[in-house]
C-alpha cells in the first residue's frame, strides 16, 4: 500500500434500499478508479462531510467489483446520515481494510455460517463466495437468528438460499406473533441438532458479542476446535490502520489483525468483563 491511507476518496451513492425499519443497504460506486477489490469480511471507513467516519462491513458480492454494498443501521450521528443518503450523494470512502473470513482455510470442510441480527451483513459476501465456488466446500449450513420475523435481514435471499438443495438454512427468532411458521428460540440452541462432524467443520460467526459468545460455547460443546471457529469482532475504530489504538483487544488490533479472528486468539478475553 502507498499514499496517505487516512485520506478518503469521494464516491457516489448509486442505490439505496431499505432492508428493515432502521436499516438500509447503500450501493456505492467503487471509486473513480472503478475497481476496488475486497475480500469477504473486510470493511470500509465511510465519511459523512463534517460529521465523522464509521467502519461499515462490506455486505455485497466480492465477485463483482463495479459497486460496493454496505448495510447500515441508523443508530448514531454518522450512521443516521449514511442511512439517509440519496442516489448521487457523495460520501468519503477509505478501504477495504482488515482480514476477512477464512474462505481458503475453509475449503474442503463443512461450513457453519452463524449470523445474528445485522451480523448477516458481513457474512453475506462469504455466502456469495461459497455459492460461487460451491464445489470447494462440503456441507454449507447457515444458521440465522434475529429478534423477530420483522427483523430478518435479506429475507428474500434467505428464502432463495433455503430452496437450494446444497445449502441448509435454519432461521430462528427470539419472539414471534401467531402467524410465524418458523422456529422460535436462540441460535446456539440450533447447534446440537445439526448432526455434523465437528472435526471437519469451520464455523464463521458474526452477531452481537453476547450472541457470539453463546454460539462459541455451543460450537465448542459440539466439538469444534477453537482454531476452526472464526468471529468478526467489533471495537471502536478511528484509523483502521492499527495506529490509533482504539480497537486494541489483547494481542490484536481488531482493525488490521481482524475484524475476523479465530477464537483461539481471543479465548479467555471475550468473556472477560470490560476487557
Amino acid at each position: 500500500m502507498s499514499g496517505d491511507l487516512m485520506i478518503p476518496e469521494p464516491v457516489r451513492v448509486l442505490r439505496r434500499q431499505q432492508e428493515l425499519a432502521t436499516t438500509w443497504t447503500l450501493e456505492l460506486e467503487s471509486g473513480p478508479a472503478g475497481h476496488r477489490p475486497f475480500l469477504p469480511g473486510q470493511f470500509n471507513m465511510l465519511y459523512i462531510f463534517g460529521v465523522g467516519e464509521v467502519p461499515i462491513s462490506l455486505s455485497g458480492d466480492a465477485g463483482q467489483t463495479e459497486t460496493l454494498s454496505h448495510t447500515v443501521r441508523a443508530v448514531g450521528p454518522v450512521s443516521n446520515k449514511l442511512a439517509a443518503l440519496k442516489p448521487m450523494d457523495t460520501v468519503g470512502l477509505r478501504g477495504p481494510f482488515g482480514v476477512g473470513w477464512p474462505m481458503t482455510a475453509g475449503e474442503g470442510a463443512d461450513l457453519l455460517i452463524v449470523a445474528g441480527g445485522l451480523g448477516l451483513a458481513p457474512l453475506r459476501p462469504a455466502i456469495y463466495h461459497v455459492l460461487r465456488h460451491r464445489e470447494r466446500y462440503g456441507r454449507v449450513i447457515l444458521l440465522y437468528g434475529t429478534r423477530s420475523p420483522d427483523d430478518i435481514l435479506y429475507a428474500g435471499q434467505l428464502e432463495e438460499w433455503s430452496k437450494r438443495p446444497d445449502v441448509e438454512v435454519h432461521i430462528t427468532v427470539d419472539h414471534a406473533g401467531g402467524d410465524w411458521p418458523g422456529k422460535i428460540g436462540v441460535v446456539p440452541s440450533l447447534v446440537p441438532a445439526l448432526d455434523f462432524d465437528p472435526e471437519d467443520a469451520v464455523a464463521m460467526v458474526c452477531g452481537p458479542e453476547i450472541m457470539m459468545r453463546f454460539t462459541v460455547n455451543a460450537l465448542r460443546d459440539a466439538g469444534v476446535e477453537d482454531e476452526s471457529i472464526y468471529l468478526s469482532m467489533e471495537r471502536n475504530m478511528k484509523c483502521a490502520l492499527g495506529h490509533c489504538g482504539h480497537c486494541q483487544f489483547g494481542s490484536t488490533f481488531v482493525c488490521k489483525d481482524g475484524p475476523v479472528l479465530s477464537f483461539d486468539r481471543v479465548r479467555g478475553l471475550l468473556s472477560l468483563k470490560e476487557f
Partner: peptide
C-alpha cells in the same frame, strides 16, 4: 439448563436497537 440459557439470551434482547447512539 439449555432452556434457561436461551431465556437469558432472549431477556438480553441482544439484537435490539442500542440504547445509546454511536
Amino acid at each position: 439448563t439449555s432452556r434457561l440459557h436461551a431465556t437469558q439470551m432472549q431477556i438480553l434482547d441482544v439484537y435490539g436497537a442500542p440504547e445509546q447512539p454511536e
